[in-house]
Structures are given as C-alpha cells and as structure tokens.
Design a protein around this nucleic acid. Structure first.
Lengths: 222, 222
DNA sequence: CAGGTTTCGTATCGATCACTATGGAAAATT
DNA sequence: AATTTTCCATAGTGATCGATACGAAACCTG
C-alpha cells in the first residue's frame, strides 16, 4: 500500500528503480556512505544524475532507502531467528550462525552494512552515523528482548543481566562483521560464533553459582 | 637515529610538530581518514597548509604518522599485556580490560583508531584501508603467538586451535570498539570482556573433553 | 489531435577537496 | 655583514564533490 505502479501520466521511467536501488545498496555496502560518490553510483546504477535525483531525491535519501532494503533482504532472516519458536539459546545460535552466513555471502561485500556504511564520518554526515547507530541499537534491543523472554520462561537464570549479555552478543556480531571485512570465511565466523556461544554455558553457570551453590554444576554442554 | 632536533640552519619551526601530530591523531580518530578534511586539520592543528605539508609531506603520510603515534601512546600498553610474565589467561584478561579502558578514555574519541580510521573507503584510499587491516591483523597475530606460547607451556589444551581463539578474541576487541563508539561505558566494556573471558573456561573444557576424559574438569574458575 | 505532466539527456552549477606557487621574513653559516 | 637555508603567510591551482537548469521527448487524459 504505497505508491505502487500508479503512474499518473507523463513520460515513463526508462529504468527499474528496484534494480537501481539494489546496485546503490551494494556500492554503499562496499564503500560506505561518504566514500561512495555520485559518479560511482551513476556508473553502477547505469543512470544519469537527474534520473537518480528524480527517483531518490538526494544521496542521503537514497542511502536510507538502501538501508531499509538491506534490512529486509539481507539480514532480515537473521533477525527473524529471534522470533523463531525455539529455546532462547537456539534462537541466539541461529542469529549468530545466520550472521556468519550473511556477512560472507559470495558476490556480496563482506560484513554488515550497518557497520560498514558509516562508523566515523564528517560532521556533515552525523545524521547518517546516528541512523546507523539506531539500527545497531535496535538489534541489541531485539536481542535483549528475546533474552528477557527466555528469562521469564525460566530458560535463563533470574539473576542474569540480559542487557549485558545482549551487549556482549551484539559486540560479537560487530566483531564478526569486521573479521569478515578482513577476509574471514564463513567457516571462520562460524567457529568464532561457536566460541562466543561457549561463553553462554559458562555465563549461565556463573550466574547460577553466584546464586548460592558454588560447585554443583547445572547442565552445560549444549 | 632519525632527524632528531638536528636543524641544519634556516628559520626554525614556529610550532611543535608533536603537538600538531597529536591534534591530527585525535581528529582522525574521531572522524576517520577520508572524512577528516585539510580544513579541519588546519583548524585543529593551528597551522597553515604549507606548514602541514612541509612537516608531514601529505595527508596520507600524516595519517600514517598518526597511526604510529596512536600505536605507541594509546594502545601500546594493552598489547604489552601479551608480553607480561603472567599465565596466558591472565595476559588475555589484561589485554581485554586494557582495551575496555583505552576505548573509553575521557576526552578521547571512543573506540579504536585502527577501526574508526577507515573501514569502508573510496577506491582512492584503498591503501589506507589495507594499512589499517595490517594493524588489525598484527594484533590478531600477536594474540595467536601468545596463545601458542601458553599452549607450549601446557597452560592450554594441546588440541585447541589458537588461530580460531585468536580470531575470536580479536573479534571481541573489535566489537568492544564499536560498542564504545555507540556509547558503551568502560564498565559496560569490562562486563562484555568478562563474558568473553567466560567463554575461555568453557572452550578449555570443550577442548579437554574432546581429548578423552569427559568429566575430569581441569582448572576452571581461576 | 491539444493540453498537461513527467522523465529524458546534456551541460553545467557553486562549494569543497587535497595541494602548491610565490615571495618575503627569520635564523644559521661563512 | 653577506650568503644560504628554511619556514612563513597569502592566495589560488585543477579536480571532484553533490546537486540542477534547461528544453526536448514520451506518456496520459480530454
């Protein structure tokens, strides 16, 4: 329910906006917001400047559109892991393993657009940096919410800080993104995620231990 | 043995190159290589363009000088943790806790220059991106070397992959850097590091278990 | 067909980018 | 003091940045 194919007269577009947006998204993903010039976009999208500006208003709007598209098409399924009807630990495992795959897809730039898109920017692009930070914080909040749900379900120790664990898990995903940028393979990232998940068992034990008994180990391996 | 204070005649400099380099480093740290313009540098360093170019050749050289200075003055002590005469687990703990502190110093930009400096760049700045990747890989290699030493000393299971554990630990540090950028406090990062280190015990146990005995636990909670 | 509307291609716009030419001023060397 | 050497400040270089003005072309509605 948006402006679908409703063209109210006038000369029709000579290009596919979706395909153009896709090309722009990949370019932003690879080079980041500021380092992606209009000349590069023009070439990759196969369009002239007026075509780009008529269809997407300006560079900033184009980037935001690319972010939304990335969110839907490239990492949506990973975040969907948090909504899967599985135990919380399995949901987190699906999330991290999904990230390992999403950050190393053949033919795609390595890492996550929400990080590569802009980390340090010029003062003029501060709004873009803030927008990406919002996406990252939303991920962290979604993880924390899932952990909280698991905690209420009794799957996690009651005295565990879901905020801190969420910050750790989000941080691990960020680290995976940079490792992917630095050439890590999907297998490398899966191994990394596996070690990160090992912290899970240890952290559960620690929380349970500090709850009273010091050496009576609860269930550990997976 | 460099060009120390040896000025072979001519008009002396009217500014302190070290202080100027320091200002440039902080600006690059905050905004990254490409987003830091000469106009910004000029203002922060309090110099005119010819002064900058005469003292530092060009922007790229200035950035590399800033990287070296950052390496020495801001994160050197953290990497020194790897050379400390302590057990390997304690060395890693010192490293991560040092990073937590270095990434959140009051009055300094959050996170690590080796990440904020350039992650996604324009094709023209590819050499800079590669240089930063080299620094990051050097960190990973140093961690792997320390782990290998600990393994030889019998402090780590013989069948443990030090490369994978090093990649995990480096990834955690990268994640901490981004979390710091997103506003995480030193305490937040210490908590994150604490959870990451909990993975340590779990990973040790996993490796030891797969080595034969399934329930004879090696030393865990230090 | 005429009128209205939208996009097209071409050729730029002013601003900012990293960088430097020029010439005089200041200090060390002779 | 004369010469040499280096740095200073002013001003401006060509290139590229994101974004547009313009008029012709292509569609819809009457």
């Amino acid at each position: 329910m948006e402006n679908s194919e409703k063209s109210r007269g006038g000369r029709p577009r000579a290009f596919d906006p979706e395909a153009a947006l896709d090309a722009a998204m990949h370019l932003f993903w690879e080079h980041g917001y500021e380092a992606t010039s209009l000349a590069m976009l023009r070439k990759a999208m196969g369009l002239t400047p007026p075509q780009i500006y008529n269809a997407f208003t300006d560079k900033e709007t184009l980037f935001r559109r690319a972010l939304a598209r990335y969110h839907e098409r490239e990492v949506g399924f990973a975040l969907d892991a948090l909504g899967a009807p599985v135990p919380v630990k399995e949901a987190i495992r699906l999330l991290l393993m999904g990230a390992a795959e999403a950050y190393t897809r053949p033919g795609k730039p390595g890492g996550c657009l929400f990080i590569s898109g802009a980390l340090a920017t010029s003062p003029q692009a501060q709004a873009i940096a803030d927008e990406l930070k919002t996406y990252r914080k939303a991920t962290e909040a979604a993880i924390a919410a899932r952990l909280g749900k698991g905690q209420e379900a009794g799957e996690l120790p009651a005295n565990l800080s879901v905020e801190r664990l969420a910050k750790y898990l989000t941080g691990v995903m960020h680290g995976m993104s940079i490792q992917a940028r630095d050439g890590a393979s999907a297998e490398d990232l899966r191994a990394l995620a596996g070690i990160a998940l090992a912290a899970w068992a240890a952290e559960m034990r620690k929380a349970a231990d500090s709850n009273g008994e010091t050496d009576a180990r609860p269930v550990l391996h997976d």
